[in-house]
Each structure stands twice: as C-alpha cells, then as structure tokens.
Amino acid sequence: MIAITGASGQLGRLVLNQLLETNPASDIVALARKPETLSGYADQGVQVRQADYDKPETLLPALKGVKKLLLISGSEVGKRTAQHRAMIDAAVQAGVTLVAYTSILRADTSSLMLAQEHLATEQALQASGLPFVLLRNGWYSENYTGTAAMTVEHGALFGAAGDGRIATATRADYAAAAVAVLTGSESHAGKVYELAGDQGFTLSEYAAELAKISGKPVSYTNQSQADFQAFLQQVGLPEGLAQMLADSETGASRGELFDDSKTLSKLIGRPTTPISESIKAALAA
C-alpha cells in the first residue's frame, strides 16, 4: 500500500488523483489531520486515516500495512522539523520500505530560510535507516499565477528577484514525479532528484507574458529584500510569511530557484508545463 501525508492539501490531492488513474483505490492510504475533508476519496474506496503531526499517537496506526510513504512537507513553517521526525519515527516502527520526501531544490547547499527545515528532515531520514528518495521540488508556478488576475488588474508586479531566472513547474508536474517514484518498477531508494521546470524566466519576462496573454499592460518593479517584505506585510501577509517570501525572492536573484537539468521532465516522461499555459489557465479561472 501507498500512503500520502497531507493528502487533503493541494499537492496531496493531485497525487491522489494521479494514483487513482493506475492503482486500485484500496491500495491507497490518504492521511490527513481531518479525515472528513477527504470523504469524496473514501467514497471511491481510498483508505482515509487520521494522521496528526501534533498527535504522534495517531501516526503509527495510520501507517498500518503501508509499504511506501510519500511524506509531503508540512505547511507550518517553524514546526516542520519536529513534525516530520515524528512521522519518520512512526514509519520506522511500521516497517515502511520506502519514504519519498518533498524537499526543496538543492536543500544541502541552499541559503534560503525555507531550506533549513527541509535539510533537517533529510538528515533525520538519513539517520533513521529507512530507504528513502528525495524529491527536491523547485518553485511552484502557482506561487505566481495564483495572483495573476490581481497582478493584471493592478498592472504591476513587485518582487526582489532582480534578473534571476526561476524554473517553475506546476503542482501537477511535481505530483507526477511523486507518482513515478512511488509506482515505478525501478528502485528509487537512495536517489536525490533536483526537480524544476524545463524553462526558466525572470520576473520581468513573467510580467511581459502576463501582458501578452491578458492584453493589458503589466510592469515589474524590483525592490530590495527589506522593501519587498514591507510591501508584502502592507498587503496583509503575516510578518513571518512575508520575511520568508522576500528571502526566497532574493535567493532567486542569486539563481537559487533555477535548475536546467530537466530532471523533472525526464522523470515524468513529458515536458513540464510552460508558464504561459499556467497563466492562461489562471486568467481563465
């Protein structure tokens, strides 16, 4: 059986949907803090179980009979190291034979704030003795296209990435990589996959693409890290999230969100989704 943590999240649901295309529902275990949010999958025959990172006693029962585990990184920045370790400990006790973890691009050398908890989790996996594979996901296209309509409406995009190229892919692309690793005939244990989109873009190029597709003018304004963080807080983001995003954008200016190995497209057997297609989908929604 294959289990997915964070199955009620955006990436988790995409993984579930893709697994259901080729695997019996009864062989899939969807783990969530609130199982009721996955009732639609339970109706299809998926085994929906409670797994709450903050309630370690729920984790071992949730992994009963599971052989492969997709550990999707948690969303609570600052708490993830302890939460992930609890799940890894449960996986050891449950006899899981492979853990796939969604890390971050070049976690072992990245200077991004976001990389710290991912690296700590990678180290915990190494220490656990479990067979594991690292899916070092790059930036999601949705990190930008999620606000595409608003950006077009205001005709202005703000950031701190300078001329740094960002190689994004969609959540569905990264979900496909996870499914390939979990269901493929070859062994992926011990492998590290640096995953990113086939083609990168600067934020100036992204703004130009927004303008081209929408038919409305969109300009990009580059800011310092401090000014961009202040801007994000001004539009309503919590200080911690604004700090993390501004730090990531500055990292992008140094090339930390770019990779041209095309490892992701090779793993999923098709090109990654171009940013233009993601923009079109976002503006049509």
Rank of each mutant, 00 (worst) to 15 (best):
A3Q: 04
I4V: 08
T5D: 03
G6Q: 07
S8M: 02
Q10P: 03
Q10Y: 07
L11W: 00
L16T: 03
Q18Y: 02
Q18G: 14
Q18M: 12
Q18D: 15
E21Q: 14
D27L: 06
K34Y: 13
E36P: 02
E36K: 03
A42F: 01
D43M: 09
G45V: 15
V46E: 15
Q47N: 12
V48R: 14
V48I: 05
R49D: 08
Q50Y: 06
A51M: 06
P56C: 07
P56K: 03
P61C: 10
G65H: 12
V66E: 11
L69N: 12
L70G: 08
V77G: 08
V77C: 06
G78R: 00
T81S: 12
T81Q: 07
R85P: 00
R85H: 06
A86V: 02
A86Y: 01
M87V: 02
A90L: 01
A91F: 03
A91G: 02
L98M: 07
L98H: 08
A100H: 04
Y101W: 03
I104F: 15
R106A: 12
S111A: 12
M113E: 11
E117H: 04
H118K: 13
T121M: 02
Q123T: 14
Q123P: 04
A124V: 01
P131K: 14
V133R: 11
Y140Q: 03
Y140N: 09
S141H: 15
S141E: 15
E142R: 00
T151A: 09
E153G: 15
H154N: 15
H154K: 11
G159K: 03
G159I: 07
A161W: 00
A161Y: 02
A161S: 15
D163T: 15
D163A: 09
G164W: 02
R165W: 04
R165M: 09
T170C: 08
Y174L: 11
A176L: 03
V179R: 04
L182H: 07
H188F: 08
V192W: 03
E194D: 14
E194W: 01
Q199N: 11
S204I: 04
E209G: 13
E209Y: 00
A211G: 05
A211R: 06
K212M: 14
G215R: 00
K216A: 10
P217Y: 01
P217Q: 09
S219R: 12
S219A: 13
Y220Q: 06
T221Q: 13
N222L: 06
N222P: 03
Q225S: 09
D227Q: 12
F228A: 10
F231E: 15
V235R: 05
L237R: 06
A242M: 01
Q243W: 10
D247L: 04
E249M: 13
T250W: 09
S253M: 05
F258Y: 14
D260H: 13
K262T: 08
K262Q: 09
T263M: 12
S265A: 05
K266S: 10
K266L: 14
I268T: 05
G269N: 06
T273S: 09
P274V: 04
I275E: 07
E277N: 13
L283R: 01
A285I: 04
